[in-house]
């Protein structure tokens, strides 16, 4: 999947922003330090993945789940991350649920639209539906990204 080695790096701009936000204002970060942190972050991902995978394998599962990652954090002695991670996951789940509802709503809108087309009712309603459609594509794209397959 990773065709070029740089595919295994995290984007420098984002890493730099996260570092800047963590440090007090006015602190500079040397280029070398930034590169090192970015590499450290990639290694962290691999290390966490490997730990989490051990937990999944022990449980004879082929898919890493949230519990595996949490267990990995504990094993890696990053207990301090557990609480913020739990909160973030809650918020994330809520967001996902919202998205799901939005796309279900969209489906309904679609059905309604085709009904309207079939019975060839008034044009106004149809135009309204199209406006809805314009607002939604983003949701759909994100939903596609969520699928975790190879």
């Amino acid at each position: 999947m990773a065709e070029r080695p740089e595919d295994l790096n995290l984007p420098n701009a984002v890493i730099t922003r996260i570092i800047k936000e963590a440090l007090p204002d006015g602190v500079n970060v040397s280029k070398e330090a930034r590169r090192a942190i970015s590499q450290a972050a990639s290694v962290f991902v691999l290390y966490a993945t490997s730990c989490a995978n051990n937990f999944a394998m022990k449980a004879k599962r082929k898919t890493l789940n949230a519990g595996d990652v949490m267990a990995a954090m504990e094993e890696m002695e990053f207990e301090r991350f557990l609480q913020p991670l739990r909160e973030a996951l809650e918020a994330y789940k809520k967001g996902q649920k919202g998205k799901k509802e939005a796309s279900e709503q969209k489906k309904k809108d679609k059905e309604k639209k085709s009904d309207a087309e079939e019975s060839d009712k008034n044009k106004d309603e149809e135009e309204e539906e199209e406006e809805h459609m314009d607002e939604e594509p983003e949701v759909e794209n994100e939903a596609e990204d969520e699928e975790v397959e190879n």
């Binding site: 995290l10 996260i18 972050a41 993945t49 394998m57 949490m70 975790v148």
Partner: peptide
């Protein structure tokens, strides 16, 4: 040796990496 990762696990790992970067810095 990793075959599949579910969405929540991916999200948590991403978030943890951000926390890690902050913490390390």
């Amino acid at each position: 040796d990793v075959s599949n990762i579910n969405q929540e696990a991916l999200f948590l790992t991403t978030k943890a990496t951000e926390l890690f970067v902050q913490h390390l810095a």
